[in-house]
């Protein structure tokens, strides 16, 4: 930490925990309010929520208050313990994602050496929660949804992981601060003013990462696991009230975290020209704002695709990952490696 005053480890930890407890729900609320409520509505020539607050901005407050008051129901045959635990597992995976994302030279919960590898690892914990929910609900729709989700997350985990390898090769570092630094210190043919955002060289990796993210978040066009029109809501079908809210928090919190990861790896993260990489008040104040702007830009693209494309069929979905994305990402790795060695 590069704060002016030195705090003991437990004091820092307390601040971090308080921060994360505020950041995850707020980030989720911003994502849902901006994109899911308003942007989707306007893209479909609707107004969206308009009653709660000016232009419907307080809609989520109303929704939250509603969720808390709803009765919790579980099917009689459900496996109660697993049924209650499943949403918590999904939420846990989302919380852990936020550990490694840096928002400034000193603003990061923990700059783990494993960085991006850790993020990819914890993001796949949510599959367990989804499978648990699907099985424990004792419901056919839920079971099919859970199985589809597992198959899909397995298929798209690979392009996601392999797309990141290109960035790791270029940066020579797994920690996200290291990746930000590598981009800030990079040069475009000797022109170093704006650094080298990896999206310029890893455009294929960026596209692969975004597509795989879309599938990992089970968003349209990859929303077979929760397809409303055939599986009602897949693995979420038996969940009500707060337990449903946890799934919701987990899903859209992860959408924010993945957008932030993409912004950090491909768009330069919190750094813009003029900020000091080593620390300082300016970088620590402006950094989070910059990261937030880039994150929202990526999230905009993700949700834009979500509202635009129709759902893929299950077999198309599987073969798209195995026949196109995985070979492409292997080629991307080799080409990036060759460029790294030759230049």
């Amino acid at each position: 930490m590069t704060l002016a005053l030195e705090l003991a480890y437990w004091q820092q930890l307390a601040i971090k925990v308080l921060a994360i407890l505020v950041i995850v729900p707020t980030a989720t609320a911003i994502i849902v309010q901006t994109f899911l409520f308003k942007m989707m509505a306007h893209m479909q020539s609707r107004l969206g929520p308009m009653e709660a607050g000016p232009h419907g901005t307080l809609q989520l407050m109303a929704d939250g208050a509603k969720f808390v008051q709803k009765e919790l129901l579980a099917p009689a045959r459900a496996d109660r313990r697993v049924f209650t635990l499943a949403p918590v597992v999904v939420l846990l995976s989302t919380f852990l994602l936020f550990v490694v994302i840096p928002a400034g030279p000193g603003i990061v919960a923990e700059n783990l050496d494993l960085g991006i590898f850790f993020a990819l690892a914890v993001s796949s914990i949510s599959v367990l929660g989804v499978l648990m929910a699907g099985w424990a609900s004792a419901n056919k729709y839920a079971l099919m949804g859970g199985l589809r989700a597992a198959g899909q997350l397995i298929a798209y985990e690979l392009p996601l992981v392999l797309a990141v390898v290109g960035v790791v090769i270029q940066a020579g570092d797994l920690s996200l601060q290291g990746i930000v630094r590598a981009q800030a210190e990079g040069e475009i043919f000797g022109f170093g003013l704006i650094g080298l955002p990896f999206v310029l060289t890893q455009f294929l990796g960026f596209a692969l990462f975004l597509i795989a993210t879309q599938a990992e978040l089970t968003q349209p066009p990859f929303d077979m696991p929760v397809a409303e029109s055939e599986l009602v809501a897949g693995f979420q079908v038996e969940y009500s009230g707060l337990q449903f809210l946890y799934f919701y928090l987990g899903e859209f919190g992860a959408a924010f975290a993945f957008s932030a990861l993409a912004a950090t790896m491909f768009l330069g993260g919190w750094w813009v020209p003029g900020l000091d990489l080593e620390g300082g008040l300016l970088a620590n104040v402006v950094g989070p704002v910059v990261l937030f702007a880039k994150t929202m830009a990526v999230a905009f693209v993700i949700f834009w695709i979500r509202f635009t494309y129709p759902r893929l069929r299950e077999d198309q979905l599987q073969s798209f990952a195995w026949k196109y994305l995985i070979p492409l990402s292997l080629v991307n790795i080799l080409v990036t490696g060759a460029f790294k060695v030759i230049f």
């Binding site: 846990l92 936020f98 550990v99 923990e110 946890y246």
Partner: peptide, 25 residues
């Protein structure tokens, strides 16, 4: 820190569930 963050997720769930238990029918 990672373990504590996992605990924070549990804490959030616990807090919300307690509030929910008081409010919901």
């Amino acid at each position: 820190t990672v373990a504590v963050f996992a605990g924070a997720a549990g804490l959030l769930v616990l807090a919300l569930s307690t509030v929910g238990r008081l409010l919901r029918p």
